[in-house]
Design a protein around this nucleic acid. Sequence first.
DNA 1: AAAAATAGTTAATATTATTAACTATTTAAG
DNA 2: CTTAAATAGTTAATAATATTAACTATTTTT
Lengths: 186, 186
Amino acid sequence: MLYIARQFDPLSNEKEMIESSIEESIVLSIFDLSNQLKKIGDDVYQKVGLTTQQWLILLHLANNPNLPFFKREEHSKDLMASELADSLNVSRANITNLINVLLDKGLIRQYEDKDDRRKKRLKLTKKGITLVNNTQPSRLGVINYLTEGFNDAEKKTFLRFLETCMNKLINEDDKIKSFHKLLVDI
Amino acid sequence: MLYIARQFDPLSNEKEMIESSIEESIVLSIFDLSNQLKKIGDDVYQKVGLTTQQWLILLHLANNPNLPFFKREEHSKDLMASELADSLNVSRANITNLINVLLDKGLIRQYEDKDDRRKKRLKLTKKGITLVNNTQPSRLGVINYLTEGFNDAEKKTFLRFLETCMNKLINEDDKIKSFHKLLVDI
DNA sequence: AAAAATAGTTAATATTATTAACTATTTAAG
DNA sequence: CTTAAATAGTTAATAATATTAACTATTTTT
């Protein structure tokens, strides 16, 4: 059980407990939209025998400049597993599994870093490059269809919004966690 | 293997294969942000012994008006499992499991619909209502922090963008699927 | 009255992910 | 310069999250 300084009376009218809020609507919509997009992605990528996560790895190795990861930091060398784990926000062990699938399918290859023998760097094979290129029109078709009807200024506002939120989440982690402390166990 | 009318030469320069595009940046950022938010949510909700999915069910049963589901359609009666499955975009079997956990914890209760005996409707218990109310300040704290620094017009543009995308995904499913047909097996 | 659709459940299983323990290597500290 | 700490990757065991298929019960449609 929990206790916090209370904003609402829990015994009040059970129906309209929660207020309309544009901010909460935004956050819940982002969740919902991402979910839907993932489902659509899964449908497409399973036609080529991949999951959305595996697909995202290919996009990283294709140096897709639209990935938030590449906007956050420059990468001159080929990526390694731990960087993918960072970007996808999952464990390294999980990345190992995903990579093994892609290696088996001959879509990527792995080579040892000469300067640091702990590291293994990843690269698309020709087959992997072809796959990325061949699926690109379908991907961009959906994306452009979704975003059409908005002008450039609106799209920029939108992207700035997303990136500002991300920065807050990543750089001001402490601040976010301080909100959680509003939850105190009894 | 796949074949499509080719946009890029797969043998060309391996580095800058993919162009910068604000539209693709938006979609990839939405993914990323949703991911981060989910991780944060998982951290908070696991303190109260719930997963993000279970939490979302509670938000539905609290009739949170900010949920996209309630913006899409009015609901006068209490929700049933299949409606939750619709909203969360998962199978009914999955919802059964999630609901059983919440029933065990005494956060929700289930009653049979008098008019249609196939249906079981769901309701928060007092304990469930208290939990929702007690966690609300923490949730809203994070949400308001994330969205501060943008004015109301920008927030509205942003929300309209998200909702327009969702509508396209839901109502114009055929159109989306037609893009996938750009992928043709050899 | 029969057939189809809807709601929910169960069982078996797939997937996706995690943690913990381990090796190998590099970097930092005393 | 040698020990301790940090980093990269892997493996094994397991948790969580989800799915499909088959089933019952009920309602709706034809």
